[in-house]
Computed example of a mutant assay.
Amino acid sequence: MIEMVILGTGNIAFHLFNAFSESENIRVIQVYNHRQESLKYFSNFTDTTTNIKNLKPAHFYLLALKDDVIPEIAEKLKSYVGIILHTSGAVGLNALDSTTNFGVFYPLQTFSKNKAVDFSKIPVCIEANSAENLEKIRSLASRITIDVREIDSEQRKALHVAAVFVNNFSNHLYSIGAEICAENKIDFSILKPLIAETASKIESLNPLEAQTGPALRNDQKTIETHLAFLSKKHKDIYSLLTQSIQDLHGKKL
């Protein structure tokens, strides 16, 4: 039985806790957070603590924490023999080098506590300070997902930036679309089939091939109509993205 301590109670910690808890061969024996109120959910299922000095012996210590505190927390775990893992896409492996056995366990997905995910299909990117530790982390990951990939720190940094574009930025554009709809008394749900089709197209097409719209067609009349309609805050974004599409496809605005 693999025993694990999770440090953190945010979205990633929440979903990893549930995924590990559902595995027959993994037991989350403790969850740590410095705020007692954040531990309420986890205390229904396992031991919890607000004192980092009271962590239990375990095979893995998973740091599902804000990026800027990872090195500081890792320093406090340097006496532990278990493998110290962080879950960040943007933090390098060397942030944990104050410890003896360490690695990265980065699930490439967007997480919200009120939205369930099927962890078995989520890519988990792994890295470690030794071949032996890498295999142990691979074994851990394979118990909750079928997609385990060895990705080094530089690749993971690039992957995280790419993920921000395809996830965070695209979701922000949904918010802008919803705002424009609301301002004009249109139900945003009318756009959901379009959003779904756009996402599904890249299952069979390269994103470059899937591009459509007035920017690609160099439809200046439509572009000018849109710019005249938009408020200043949205006009700048529209212009920047239009220019980017045209630059990528070799057209002029």
Rank of each mutant, 00 (worst) to 15 (best):
M4H: 00
K56A: 11
K115W: 02
K115T: 14
E37D: 15
I186T: 09
D152W: 00
R27S: 15
L205N: 08
T198W: 01
P107D: 00
A95S: 14
K76C: 01
A128S: 11
I186P: 10
S130R: 03
F229V: 04
R138F: 05
E132Q: 13
Q243M: 07
D219F: 10
I52G: 01
A178S: 15
H226R: 10
L173H: 08
V104P: 00
K78G: 00
I186E: 03
D67W: 05
P207Y: 03
P71A: 03
N218M: 01
H160E: 04
H15I: 13
K121T: 15
K185F: 07
K136H: 11
V5H: 06
F14K: 08
N114C: 00
N206G: 00
S244T: 15
I70G: 02
G8A: 05
A131N: 10
F111K: 12
S112R: 14
K252W: 00
E75C: 02
P214K: 02
R138D: 09
H234T: 11
K157G: 02
E203A: 10
G10L: 06
H15S: 10
E179A: 14
T222L: 11
L7I: 13
P71Y: 06
A64N: 02
L77A: 02
A228T: 10
I26Y: 06
Q155T: 03
I6H: 03
I146N: 14
E37W: 04
T212Y: 03
F188I: 14
I52R: 02
L65S: 12
E24M: 08
I2M: 09
D47V: 14
G8N: 03
A158D: 02
N18K: 15
I237N: 11
A74L: 09
V104D: 00
A162R: 05
N44F: 04
S38H: 12
S142T: 13
E132I: 14
